[in-house]
Design a protein around this nucleic acid. Structure first.
Length: 335
DNA sequence: CGTCCACTGGAAGCCGTGGCGC
DNA sequence: GCGCCACGGCTTCCAGTGGACG
């Protein structure tokens, strides 16, 4: 039934991006000056997960490079490569030789200098999940490099700009800002339809099935695409040649829990103990949480570290932190 | 009202690790 | 083999915030 599993992953960038033409146009307009050899305008893309930000950025960049094959550009996911060193190395990758850049023995300034020296024209740096960057110095530096056009992607605008000082702030705000909303059911169904056409046998899923998944995914295209794949797998396991209501029943929960499981697996022992302690309690305040966590591990980390863990779990969407100071409470996010 | 207290999150500094050049 | 360098993970310290309480 599945003819091309690659298409059924959220990270696949399709030939045509559904329902994001306006966003693509606005980002393209920012980058258009590059076609004449000038730097583009900086751009920022904001919106919830699964709203198509990364897809639009990658798609637009691909289009641009088809028209301008010599353009130097790099996409960096700051969640995976979050240190300034890692980002700089990835950027240098695009324009220079990094075979002699070994893990940690090359001074970070040297990377910057080599990057600058290797630039011989406009450069587009797409920084995805840029709010995960451990230091904003890098943004100032790239911003001050005339050849570099920045495309920044983040969930929430306020949180990204909160850390930036006025100079960078105003230059980024002065650039193009594109807001992404969650997809509606129709839009999400259209995305699934085109994925199904390319990744599944014809007739493997009907219109109603697509809408069911779209509706249950709450406008998150990533969940929806994962759910389509899960439903197709369920049908395959059954030996069926088309997706039925029974295959759809658990598709979205399965997709969500797969996404969550994947994230849980990346946690270390102590982070996991904090998560388990919160899960066991249902809802818990910071004091009791630290006690509960301490009981679960042999060599507990400091309270400060537990706060860092909680911040990370919150960013992962695994727990929710409510309340500000005295009335802070943590709870797990259920599927 | 002022004081105390619990908690947050930024900053600074420590340390073990690992690859490199000498 | 040794010192260097940057890293990530960690602790300690601290200013700020806001509810509780005398």
């Amino acid at each position: 039934m599945i003819t091309d599993a690659r298409v059924l992953t959220a990270h696949f960038v399709p030939r045509d991006v559904e329902h994001r033409h306006e966003e693509i146009d606005r980002l393209s307009a920012a980058l258009d000056p590059l076609l004449d050899g000038h730097p583009g305008e900086n751009a920022s893309l904001f919106g919830p997960t699964g709203a198509g930000k990364t897809c639009v950025a990658r798609y637009t960049l691909r289009q641009l490079r088809e028209r301008l094959p010599g353009l130097d550009a790099q996409y960096v996911n700051c969640w995976r490569d979050g240190s300034p060193f890692a980002v700089r190395r990835r950027l240098l990758d695009a324009v220079g030789d990094t075979t002699d850049v070994h893990r940690q023995s090359t001074a970070i300034d040297a990377l910057r200098e080599r990057f600058r020296a290797a630039l011989d024209g406009p450069f587009v740096a797409v920084l995805d999940e840029v709010d995960q960057l451990s230091s904003t110095d890098l943004l100032y530096d790239l911003n001050a490099t005339p050849e570099v056009t920045l495309v920044l992607i983040a969930n929430r605008e306020a949180e990204l700009f909160a850390d930036l000082d006025d100079r960078l702030d105003s230059r980024l705000r002065g650039g193009v800002t594109v807001h992404f909303d969650r997809y509606g059911v129709e839009e999400c169904a259209a995305i699934l339809r085109s994925r199904a056409e390319r990744g599944l046998d014809p007739g493997a899923i009907d219109e109603e099935g697509l809408r069911t998944i779209a509706d249950r995914s709450g406008g998150d295209a990533r969940v929806a695409i994962d759910a389509l794949r899960a439903a197709a797998r369920a049908a395959e396991r059954r030996g069926g040649d088309r997706i039925t209501d029974a295959d759809l029943a658990d598709a979205v929960p399965t997709a969500r829990s797969t996404i969550r499981e994947r994230r849980l697996e990346t946690l270390g022992e102590h982070q996991r103990a904090v998560y388990d302690a919160i899960r066991a309690a249902g809802e818990i305040e910071p004091g009791p949480l630290y006690e509960a966590y301490s009981d679960r591990v042999d060599d507990p980390r400091s309270r400060r570290m537990v706060r860092n863990y909680c911040a990370k779990l919150d960013q992962y969407g695994l727990i929710r932190a409510e309340g500000e100071t005295r009335d802070r409470r943590y709870s797990v996010v259920e599927e």
